[in-house]
Design a protein around this nucleic acid. Structure first.
Lengths: 232, 232
DNA sequence: CCGACGGTTTGACATATATCAATTGATTTG
DNA sequence: CAAATCAATTGATATATGTCAAACCGTCGG
């Protein structure tokens, strides 16, 4: 693994505070690999052998049941995924596939569990990370249960806008069919939902979104930090 | 706090392995209180001052947005709630109200955070607990996104049946309007959903459910451990 | 026992969302 | 460049779910 990557991983909240020895020993057992797009990295139900870290590219976490499939989340560099399964030594609840060419580091789960027991700073960081993940899913669930699809889209656009810097125009960061799945609707419905937001000053050109009337859209979307603010 | 309660709390996974001193000091700052039914214990958005433990009774965790409300989960003895907010020192994402007369222990959040830093067994237990909570919410989200309301009800009944001992007949453990909210539907729809399960051998008499054709219902519900098994 | 109350059920209807089929539009590939 | 491919859109339609109003029904208190 190149030094720059090593340092980037070290800087993750999860690893930043742990003892040097422990970090080194974690990384010794790790390996890094490049994957093409659309490769299934893990499959739900399998034992959780590795903690994954996305170094570059992006990964879709999705689930299936009875022939249906839904996108649960997208993981972007640099962050980890399936930490909970690793810690609990339990089967994956979600599958993961690369969305594009991606570079992924794999750390054997048993090493993570071992060092978790030995390094209290690491343990503390894991707690913080898990608490964060938990709260994110709760927010997503509130979004799903309390809002219509039009409201979910409106709030998604506002979040995405902020994430992109706050300007009136910005790019969607993934294709619409997957956005639809993330938002819990069909692609056809997403298309109609974009039209449904036109009266509130939303213009769509391909993957480019323009919010022409910020106040109007916010009045409709009613964003709420307890649902939409991912930092708390 | 009576000795028996003290011991019951001590036996919780979260506290079982921690040092005696630390447990005692946690409990010293705690206080226990009896609440009548329908009392709002915490309100979403407020700072998380206390970790709560339900000693007896039951508590509904719910959320609101834009005049709507939804039940997120029910907490039954003996277990804790809002651990994540306590750990992160972040505002509550959900509100909580007693469903019946309940006895609740309150532990100051700052004590929890302090002892979390000092007791690595406690820290380890918190990690396990949070990982468990996280996975439960992920399962709930899969349930919501991958299933229709009829399928959610069918699987809920199967879970509840198992929880009640596995017999063909059992009792719903809360009122239907709240079950509807938990399952993400209206009470009227729940009523119709029960009717929709009649062809699969489900009979409802008040709060009593009878599953007359186990195989048929399971064939329809297609329960899946990665969604319905709360122990993993 | 009666009546009031609140949860439940039912029916009629409205709305939201999914499905299917066809078309468009953009991108890739030979 | 043209054909092929795949995502996105559109329209027509079906299904699922929510809303509203009324009826029903058990429980509780007078």
């Amino acid at each position: 693994m190149p030094d720059s990557e090593y340092r980037d991983i070290r800087k993750l909240d999860l690893f930043a505070q742990m003892a040097d020895d422990n970090f080194t020993s974690l990384m010794r057992g790790a390996y890094v690999q490049n994957f093409p797009a659309q490769i299934e990295l893990i499959t739900e139900g399998e034992p959780s052998d590795f903690l994954h870290i996305v170094i570059s590219g992006s990964v879709d976490l999705f689930s299936t049941w009875n022939g249906r499939e839904t996108s649960m989340a997208t993981v972007r560099p640099i962050s980890t995924f399936i930490l909970a399964a690793t810690i609990k030594d339990a089967p994956y609840l979600m599958s993961a596939r690369t969305l594009e060419k991606s570079r992924i580091a794999l750390i054997p789960s048993q090493d993570v569990r071992a060092i978790f027991g030995a390094d209290s700073n690491f343990a503390r960081a894991i707690v913080t990370e898990l608490a964060q993940c938990y709260r994110s899913v709760i927010k997503a669930q509130k979004d799903l249960k309390l809002r219509t699809s039009l409201e979910r889209l409106a709030n998604y656009l506002l979040r995405q806008q902020r994430h992109a810097g706050g300007g009136a125009a910005f790019e969607l960061d993934f294709e619409k069919r997957r956005l639809a799945s993330v938002l819990g609707m069909t692609p056809e419905n997403l298309s109609r939902a974009f039209k449904g937001l036109q009266p509130y000053g939303v213009t769509v050109t391909g993957t480019r979104i323009s919010i022409d009337n910020q106040a109007d859209l916010e009045r409709f979307a009613k964003p709420n930090p307890l649902i939409d603010d991912f930092s708390t």
